[in-house]
Amino acid sequence: MTEAALATHRAFYDAVETGDVDLMASLWVDDPETSCVHPGAVPLRGTQAVLRSWTVLMANVGYIQFFLTEREVTALPPNDDDPSVVVITCTENILSGGEATGAETFSGAKAVCTSILVRDGAGWKFWSRHASPVAEIGNLDSEG
């Protein structure tokens, strides 16, 4: 069952990478209580606001690719063969690029993301997503 939820999760990243607004819209529950928090931004509520934000983001990114690591999946209720909710956490290693002064530039970023997917009649859909940037602080050993 969680394989289908993971396929929906991967489809989300495919939608962002390809700028597929229709695919993105098909992945979210249509409800005024859905939520999304982009890194460094205030929470958005409602499917329309969430989809609008992704449409704007996809329209303004020349190139983006996600490499997901540290993925963990928790089905709710636990130990249920037929869960109704899945929580997926992962680290997003992001490569993005665009054109600046006529030359292509690329940059990297990292975010930690929690996605909550719910099962409905049409399969798994996003209910909530929260991504936070990861600050690269360097060596944090105890000696200073």
Rank of each mutant, 00 (worst) to 15 (best):
M1G: 05
T2Q: 09
E3P: 04
A4P: 07
A5F: 00
L6F: 01
A7T: 10
T8V: 03
H9N: 15
V16C: 11
T18G: 11
D20H: 00
D22R: 02
L23D: 01
M24K: 05
S26G: 15
L27K: 08
L27I: 07
W28V: 06
W28S: 06
T34K: 09
V37N: 00
H38C: 08
P39C: 03
P39D: 02
A41Q: 15
L44V: 14
T47F: 05
Q48S: 15
A49L: 07
V50D: 13
V50G: 12
V50W: 07
L51P: 02
R52G: 11
W54S: 10
V56Q: 10
A59L: 05
V61W: 09
G62E: 06
Y63P: 04
Q65W: 12
Q65L: 13
F66K: 14
F66D: 13
L68W: 10
T69G: 02
T69E: 07
E70S: 11
E72V: 12
V73A: 00
A75T: 06
P77M: 01
P77H: 01
P78V: 04
N79L: 12
D81A: 06
D81F: 00
D82H: 11
I88G: 01
L95M: 15
S96C: 11
G97L: 03
G98Q: 02
E99I: 12
A100W: 08
T101N: 12
A103Q: 13
T105V: 14
T105H: 12
F106D: 12
S107D: 15
G108Y: 03
G108A: 08
G108I: 11
A111M: 05
A111D: 06
V112C: 15
V112G: 14
V112D: 14
V112S: 15
C113M: 08
T114Q: 09
S115D: 11
I116C: 08
L117C: 03
D120C: 01
F126S: 04
W127P: 03
S128N: 04
S128V: 00
R129D: 13
S132Y: 05
S132G: 14
P133G: 14
E136V: 10
E136G: 05
N139G: 12
N139C: 14
D141H: 08
S142L: 14
S142C: 10
S142I: 11
E143V: 04
G144R: 04
G144Q: 00
